[in-house]
Design a protein around this nucleic acid. Sequence first.
DNA 1: CTAGATTGTCTAGCGCTGCTAGATTCGGAC
DNA 2: GTCCGAATCTAGCAGCGCTAGACAATCTAG
Lengths: 188, 188
Amino acid sequence: MVESRKERERAERGRLIVGAARELAEAEGWDAVTTRKLAEKVEYSQPVLYSHFKNMDAIAATVALEGFEELAAVLREALSGAASPPDALRRIARTYLGFAAEHPALYDAMFVRRTDLTFGTNETPAPLRAAFEAFHQATEPFAGAEHEALTELFWSSLHGLATLTQGHRLRPAYHEDRIDILIDLITQ
Amino acid sequence: MVESRKERERAERGRLIVGAARELAEAEGWDAVTTRKLAEKVEYSQPVLYSHFKNMDAIAATVALEGFEELAAVLREALSGAASPPDALRRIARTYLGFAAEHPALYDAMFVRRTDLTFGTNETPAPLRAAFEAFHQATEPFAGAEHEALTELFWSSLHGLATLTQGHRLRPAYHEDRIDILIDLITQ
DNA sequence: CTAGATTGTCTAGCGCTGCTAGATTCGGAC
DNA sequence: GTCCGAATCTAGCAGCGCTAGACAATCTAG
């Protein structure tokens, strides 16, 4: 079964490329992630990248997908340790903002850079739906008829906080207060 | 006074460049705004752009500044026509989201693209402070001690809604609901 | 063990980008 | 009309995403 060995090595190299892209993006931002640097980092020539991915955007999309999986995991964990519905909401908020702050480039790939990943439809990737599901679960005790809309609003608020914080457009001194107020508003 | 005429013509050409950049960005997105297309549009060679602006980012920053002025104006107008504090809040929200939806590229330059414009400090440009002041005023009746934090949270929420909507990451069907819930939460 | 086919990889290059040095043309002063 | 300085252009650099075609390594068949 020579084919399966080749297959494995090929898949391994694919992961190597995605890992290199993520590392480079996290270290120097997505602008610094070029096909030439990436090729050098994995010690192959540029065309090899295109035998694994359609183009540069597809590489970033794969990094994003990896991010969705990790986000879904930490959100699930945050939920599982919650003592009460308000605590769950607070944990989700802190975990989400923590994730965005710790992996700014990854967050960029997931939610800011233009991608062709679809949201809120049937074709939405499973990890992304799983992450949304955590939000959905956390808001449930505080939602009336408009549960879906509240979930999207909660997520949007956190996304706004995450991106504006990342762009140094909010005063760091009020960081905790902003979270507290958001939670208080939803939990009454 | 030949000099003053030259000065005027020069300033006029500067505005021409900024206008062309904005037009092109709004029509085809910022990726399509290149020095060559811009030069062709204003019927001068590329180096002329650099006698007006340090680089491409400076042009986008000037477009953004123009946007802040317009945003501040429409927000002030929204406030002036409000019948009650909750109505003021609702008008601000609708106006802000309307502005973002109508001028997506402009909004991008103002709040999404990396710029060296400073936020929330003394060096923050006046139009930007004016826009924030409208938010500040609208939230005032509903704020306790943490008025500043609530203002930033309200803005962040709208920013999150604006960007995620633009990226087709929220379900259009819930658009109105999301706004209603946000206003209800803040106004109790 | 060799010959031929297939697969994998690389070199080289296209058209684009932001930006700039140096040549050239233009406008006003004498 | 001549000169000079300022305004403007031509031409080019290095780097970008992406790809065609050359080449090398590997597997298969005899």
